[in-house]
Simulated assay, not measured.
Amino acid sequence: MQPAARRRLLVVLASLTVALLVADLAGWSGADGVRSVGGLVLGPVQRVLSGAPRDELARVEAENVRLRALSGEQEQRLEELGRLEDLMGSATTTGRTLVPARVVATDLSPLGGRSVTIDVGSRDGIRTDSTVVAADGLVGRVVAVSPWTSDVQVLGSADSVVAVRVGPAGALGTVSAPTPGDSESRPRGSLRLELVVPSTPVVGDVVRTLGSVDETPYAAGLVVGTVTSVDPDRGQRARSATVRPAIDPDAIDVVAVLVPTARTSPRPAVRSTTPAPGSAR
Rank of each mutant, 00 (worst) to 15 (best):
R263Y: 09
V224E: 03
V196S: 13
R234P: 06
E215G: 07
P249C: 10
S212L: 06
I247T: 12
D214A: 15
V206M: 07
V207D: 00
T228N: 06
D205F: 04
A269E: 12
T228Y: 10
S199W: 12
R244S: 13
T200A: 14
S229E: 11
E215H: 11
A256M: 03
R237D: 14
A238K: 01
S199D: 14
P245L: 06
V224Y: 03
V270N: 03
L222G: 01
P198T: 09
V254E: 02
V202N: 12
G221Q: 08
R234N: 15
P266E: 06
L195S: 05
A251V: 10
D250Y: 11
T226M: 06
A241H: 00
P268H: 00
V255E: 01
D250H: 15
T200W: 07
R237N: 12
D248G: 09
R208D: 07
P217N: 07
A219V: 14
I247D: 00
V197Y: 06
R237M: 11
V257Q: 00
P232I: 11
P201K: 02
P245S: 04
A241N: 03
T261W: 11
T228F: 10
V230Y: 03
V257G: 00
V197G: 05
A251P: 01
Q236E: 15
A256L: 04
V254L: 05
G221W: 08
R234W: 14
I252L: 15
R237E: 13
V223H: 03
V257C: 04
T261E: 15
T228K: 06
V230K: 05
S240Q: 10
V227C: 07
S212N: 12
E194Q: 13
A269I: 15
A251E: 09
D248Q: 07
I252S: 00
Y218P: 00
L195W: 03
P201M: 03
T216A: 15
V224F: 05
S265D: 10
I252F: 02
G235K: 08
S212Q: 04
V230E: 02
S265N: 11
E194I: 08
A269H: 13
D233A: 11
A246F: 04
D214F: 09
I252Q: 00
V257E: 02
G235P: 04
D253T: 11
P268Y: 02
V203S: 10
I247F: 04
D231K: 03
D231T: 08
R208M: 12
L210N: 05
T242F: 01
A238Y: 08
P232Y: 10
V259S: 02
V230D: 01
T209E: 09
T242H: 00
T242N: 05
V257F: 02
D248M: 09
L210V: 09
A256H: 02
P260N: 03
A238M: 04
A269F: 13
V254C: 01
V197N: 06
V227L: 04
P217M: 07
D250Q: 13
P198Q: 07
G221I: 10
A219R: 03
S265G: 10
A246E: 03
V259G: 01
D233R: 10
A256Q: 01
V224L: 06
S265V: 14
G225M: 02
Q236M: 12
S229L: 11
S265A: 15
A241P: 02
E215Q: 15
A241E: 00
R244D: 07
L210C: 06
D248S: 13
V257A: 11
A220L: 13
S240F: 06
G211D: 08
A269Y: 12
D233I: 09
T200K: 08
S199V: 10
